[in-house]
Design a protein around this nucleic acid. Sequence first.
DNA 1: AAGACACTAGACAGACCTGTCTGTTATCGT
DNA 2: ACGATAACAGACAGGTCTGTCTAGTGTCTT
Lengths: 198, 198
Amino acid sequence: MSSASPTVGSPVTRKASARDRLLEAADELFYAEGIHTVGIDRIIERAGVAKASLYSCFGSKDELIKAYLEGRHEIRRSRMLAGLELHDDPRERLLAVFDVLAELAEDRGYRGCAFYNASAESTPGGVVDEVSTANRAWTRGVLTQLARDAGAHDPGALAEQLMVLYDGANAGARMDRRADAAILARGMAAALLAAATA
Amino acid sequence: MSSASPTVGSPVTRKASARDRLLEAADELFYAEGIHTVGIDRIIERAGVAKASLYSCFGSKDELIKAYLEGRHEIRRSRMLAGLELHDDPRERLLAVFDVLAELAEDRGYRGCAFYNASAESTPGGVVDEVSTANRAWTRGVLTQLARDAGAHDPGALAEQLMVLYDGANAGARMDRRADAAILARGMAAALLAAATA
DNA sequence: AAGACACTAGACAGACCTGTCTGTTATCGT
DNA sequence: ACGATAACAGACAGGTCTGTCTAGTGTCTT
């Protein structure tokens, strides 16, 4: 407990821990096929991990789902921030949101917003709703800040418009299996921004 | 077979047939809670119908799901067409699409696009995909026609933009539980239309 | 009156799914 | 060297779900 070294030195990651492999497998399967459709057995089989390890790491399928969504949130966050940092001009930074989305949507295997999808197949008031609304609030906040930085007259109002475009591009990318919607959304966002700063 | 009357005289509807009650119950439950979450037993209980009748009418849960989505398509179709017929001006007719959506979204209990939701929780390539893509093609066709009637320079291109707005309004209405997105989408559609006919 | 038909109630089979439990093996710090 | 920890494999229990089957009831037509 108190003996030896107080700093344990990278206490979590060992090489490719069962937890990580489980999370990776769950991410792939849940996103591709849905939360309900994919059972525990398929996840542990893909992860090459014993069932007991799953329940030792996460405690329940619900917690695994929560961890999956939190991971998605983290990835989305870092990817978007990385996309934003490519530009200095506030206008370009705002539009970069849709560039990132278009890039994601080009990947075959893109299935739309993981949070919306998860929400569509889970009972209201559960863990999914919690994480989903948090993610949505974060997205809204980012768009508002970008709108403010770009000099929008009413950043909140512009952000709401951008949310419509963002949601629409996401849904379109899933249903039509192309990135066109994101590119269209970028163009519309540019027009909105021009109008909002005039 | 060949005896009696060739025209049987309203052969289907009796008073409020088990089939209709099943379809109504399935519609309410599937839409509100999702396809996977709702089991056969809950449907027959709400419909006040025996399980054997369900399987005699539909054959399987999959077929019931299909019938549910086809019913949703029919309702969406008639509601939208009714909304369009309120106006003569082509511009107003195009924007009426979003008026109808806003009206729907105001209903608490609105949960977004039934087809998208169903698609999010079913394996690709099944009956759900089939009906969903058909519905999507129909929507796209209507928007294209409205864009043409309104004098858009490139009706197909405008329709694609409108699809983004339509999808976004639908998703936003579900996630935020308000009709704001549809109203915003209407405004953006008006701006797009003005630009496309200039 | 009688048979066809649609429906009801509910038991049942079989599959699947989550979660637990037992027993074994390997690695690591001390 | 040894105990602790983490992981393994897999059987098992309990529940839920779809779909089938039996048996009985009412209604409509002829």
